[in-house]
Design a protein around this nucleic acid. Structure first.
Lengths: 205, 205
DNA sequence: GTTTAAATTAAACGTTTGTTTAAATTTGCT
DNA sequence: AGCAAATTTAAACAAACGTTTAATTTAAAC
């Protein structure tokens, strides 16, 4: 999919607005104004507001796949967990606000195309986790009986919770600005998720 | 706050619709039809659509507070974790769909009243977790250096992830219906969160 | 039974919504 | 320069939005 400059302006404007006001809360006129573009251009280029959301989705989703290439270079399972979580959080964190849009809209009513693209993403990330657990079991450092789905849910949910409750958490953690919050996610939160997964996979009983 | 039968009909109708279509995606006419009520009744009783959401909130939020009384009866910290998670999941689970509405709407734009009520809820639950961790440290079974905020985020996020991705997870887990999904949450997921927190709090290094 | 207030209704209010139209402008090509 | 296609515009479209009105019905009080 190739987009011209104006189309990208629209996609970026939509991203900003969806992230703060949601899809239903954002009008095409809002988007047009934010992108400095005539209202009709949105329908001209994307067909409809719904199709804009779909296109926006396909445009961004590839960014959220965990990169497997880097993981192949790591030789022990505990370190693989660290790298996997780090890459996962970094990719999500770099499109923080967008990810909230995806997560919210994919759960609402029949946003089927979105759900499909999102499903592929989750299955891919799930596969990565499964292979890491299996390699850890083969090494003898991880216990058996841990469901990758639950671990993935935990990782994803914990991260998402930081997106959804930024105002509250930023206040509770005494973080001044958005940048500081992003840094916290990429350091302390990342370490926490890494520690949690390793603790879980090595836990007796 | 006391409500008559018709007001409760409206609140329940709103709950159903908000849960599936979101706040902005639900019209007052939708709500009126779902509640078998004239459109004007909503403004008559609640003032406006926004105030309906606020009222709805205050009406439901108390249900989500973790009950502290039961925890006082438990004498060791490991069991306290089990009871706390069990009560937390049970209360959230019994208003599953609603909780998704709250979580979504409280993050969007200036839904300030909601955010405030939600904040109180989170602080209360955070306090409960903090006291459990401290009692565990005093007992010598929990390590120090674990931030209650992160543990709360993990517990809440993991649970929320199950609300947000029900369609995907139900499919992945091979669960047939909504009831089965609810059961899974109250058994397997609950145990998973319990295990994760205990693993984390007892993890070396 | 009459009076007074509360509840309920259908209709209309002015906005805003997403989308389309048809004309005007710009662009690329020969 | 001249033509055709692509782009951009302002205006209009019908539909849906949240809300209000004014009239009517129901309920409660005396």
């Amino acid at each position: 999919m190739e987009f011209n400059e104006k189309q990208i302006d629209i996609l970026l404007a939509a991203e900003r607005l969806f992230a703060t006001k949601g899809f239903d809360g954002t009008s095409v006129r809002d988007i047009a104004q934010e992108a400095n573009v005539n209202v009709a251009m949105i329908n001209y280029y994307f067909g409809s507001k719904d199709k804009l959301l779909d296109t926006f989705f396909e445009w961004r989703v590839p960014d959220f796949m965990i990169n497997v290439d880097e993981l192949a270079l790591v030789d022990n399972a505990l370190d693989k967990v660290d790298v996997m979580v780090d890459r996962y959080v970094k990719s999500m964190s770099s499109h923080r606000k967008l990810y909230r849009v995806i997560a919210i809209e994919s759960t609402l009513k029949q946003r089927m195309l979105i759900s499909e693209a999102f499903k592929k993403l989750k299955i891919h990330n799930l596969d990565v986790i499964t292979s890491i657990i299996n390699s850890g079991i083969a090494e003898g450092v991880f216990k058996t009986g841990n469901d990758p789905i639950l671990i993935h849910s935990m990782m994803m949910g914990t991260f998402m919770n930081f997106q959804m409750n930024q105002v509250f958490l930023q206040d509770q953690l005494g973080i001044a600005d958005d940048d500081g919050y992003g840094k916290y996610i990429e350091t302390t939160l990342t370490q926490f998720i890494q520690k949690t997964i390793k603790a879980l996979l090595t836990y007796e009983k």
